[in-house]
Design a protein around this nucleic acid. Structure first.
Lengths: 234, 234
DNA sequence: CGAGGATACTCGTAAGTTTTTCGTAAGTCA
DNA sequence: TGACTTACGAAAAACTTACGAGTATCCTCG
């Protein structure tokens, strides 16, 4: 982004902050010292291409800022109003004041995909699609790379359905000697193995001496990217 | 919201504050300097559409202000909104300032992570956490394995923020000769490359002869697992 | 180092749309 | 009936879009 572009963006931002509504193109021109609307037009298009701004066609003052999207604008527990997309594609605005509670799951621990880390509890919450929600479900943040071959990477969030038994091949979140880890479950007779999905790592053998129990199995995973890098984040 | 609309709203707000009851339409007209009731009528409808006001049909002084009124929706100018899917695949934004955060984004196509597949439009919607929502954002379903090393696998859903330019290293959803694909973006001078995250695949070179444009960049990804298998699904 | 080529930046004007406004007539409610 | 609220229709004003074109800057390459 060029300095000029940033200036225009900042102007819009400040204008909205001050007035409570979006500036018209003429106001932007005056505010930024442009003689021509064409110039404003140019910058608006430019910002739009960069994804920092969205415009509604032909709408007066129809600018919508997206710059540094307030990543988690709503505190946990906040209730928001939701809309539905009806079949056929029209957006049905929600009935006024119909508050829908967000689907949030508690974030209760950090899972080690590599070496087990000590289990600890967090008092936080993560929004999830309803398909990942369910009674008792919780979200873990993944630490380590042992599941990369299954597409679960360091920093990912996984939604977990609580249950204490598993079938072979399922991905489980399990506690082994006080440490919590995410692995594939494999059992033959009395021999339980926790298999990583990473060729560079070796399975964990669970013996009778180990304190072991399954916390739940994987029902979903999510990853958030920062706009300005290609990297995973949070 | 336009300045006039805001002024009417502010007037009503102030009137209620001062008198303890709602103004009649005539009082609004006088207070805001309108000659005609039709004008008031117009604004009332407008505010109602924006969800800032509710009216009881035919009730005298039957205006009801929405809770926590003008603060959130417009203040930031960055309302989180999703769009509608029109036939043919264009996404139309919802009415300005609609006071809603959508939990759903339109699912508009299937991205090829391996070989590009032909772009096609779907009329469906996918729930996402609000951190993945934003004006114009859409969701794609991933086909192919070219991004496995970044943890994006066949069947995953990716949330995309629309923009037509990208910086080196960002993961983009791009259209090349009518096919749509997800790759890492790399540009040196005039040479644009689309790099897969899979050692077994080779980059796509974009030449001047190719019809090429970026649809957006990656902001999030999700995967759903079936409970009774360990496999990815849907 | 200079030429050539992209990119950023700027102006103006002529459509094309939406908002804003007025007035008048009809419908409601107590 | 009186006091309000709804319902068009229509014209002016305010804004947004669509071109077309002309500088200035920076970078690359021979």
């Amino acid at each position: 982004m060029t300095p000029k572009q940033k200036r225009v963006l900042d102007f819009i931002l400040g204008f909205v902050e001050e007035h409570g509504f979006q500036p018209s193109q003429m106001e932007i021109a005056q505010g930024c010292g442009f003689e021509s609307l064409g110039t404003v037009q140019h910058y608006l298009r430019s910002l739009e291409r960069h994804g920092l701004l969205a415009r509604q066609a032909n709408a007066k003052r129809g600018l919508q800022l997206t710059a540094n999207p307030p990543c988690l604008p709503f505190a946990k527990g906040a209730t928001l109003t939701a809309g539905t997309i009806a079949k056929g594609g029209t957006v049905t605005p929600p009935p006024l004041g119909a508050n829908v509670t967000f689907l949030e799951l508690p974030l209760v621990g950090i899972v080690a995909a590599g070496k087990p880390v000590h289990a600890f509890e967090l008092a936080d919450a993560i929004e999830v699609p309803s398909a990942m929600a369910g009674p008792g479900n919780v979200v873990y943040e993944v630490r380590g790379d042992s599941m990369v071959e299954m597409g679960i990477m360091d920093g990912d969030y996984v939604a977990v359905h609580p249950q204490s038994v598993a079938e072979n091949g399922q991905t489980v979140i399990a506690e082994v000697n006080g440490s919590i880890t995410i692995k594939k479950y494999q059992r033959k007779g009395n021999i339980i193995q926790l298999l990583p999905a990473n060729a560079a790592m070796s399975p964990i053998m669970v013996t009778e001496d180990d304190e072991f129990h399954i916390r739940g199995i994987l029902v979903g995973s999510m990853r958030f990217y920062r706009k300005w890098t290609g990297k995973s984040s949070t």
